[in-house]
């Protein structure tokens, strides 16, 4: 079951875009395995989609589901902030606290 619906907007395949994709996939596999659906949208190919969603900065990660709707911008290298935006707590942190 896909609990999370995520959209990642990028502008072409730049280093920044690739970094964001890698960071996001890595994090999702770790924290949301089999619980997410990820769409990657290249704004250069679909500018109207960016217009509809009012995207200014790229990369931008949109959390469509579960509510609330959230925007996370940047190459997602700051994992703590991404997790915060997705309302997730790192598993290893939790286990550490549990100890």
């Amino acid at each position: 079951m896909n609990q999370y619906v995520l959209k990642l907007y990028i502008t072409g395949h730049t280093a920044k875009s690739d970094r964001a994709i890698a960071n996001l996939k890595n994090l999702c596999e770790k924290e949301l395995k089999d619980q997410y659906e990820l769409n990657i949208i290249d704004v250069l190919e679909n500018p109207q989609l960016a217009e509809d969603e009012k995207i200014l900065a790229t990369p931008t990660l949109i959390r469509e589901l579960p509510p609330p709707f959230r925007r996370i911008i940047g190459d997602l290298s700051n994992t703590d902030k991404v997790l915060l935006g997705l309302d997730l707590f790192p598993k290893n942190n939790l286990t550490q606290k549990g100890d």
């Binding site: 907007y9 502008t11 072409g12 730049t14 920044k16 970094r19 964001a20 960071n23 704004v43 250069l44 500018p47 109207q48 960016a50 217009e51 009012k54 995207i55 200014l56 900065a57 790229t58 990369p59 931008t60 709707f69 959230r70 925007r71 996370i72 911008i73 940047g74 190459d75 997602l76 290298s77 700051n78 994992t79 902030k81 991404v82 915060l84 935006g85």
Partner: peptide
């Protein structure tokens, strides 16, 4: 490019305004 006050975005890393430029060109 007007911001919605209820939709605050979280910054997690480097970004640019590439999407904005693409929209303008479009």
């Amino acid at each position: 490019a007007s911001s919605k006050p209820e939709e605050e975005s979280i910054e997690a890393g480097n970004y640019d305004l590439g999407a904005f430029l693409a929209r303008i060109e479009h």
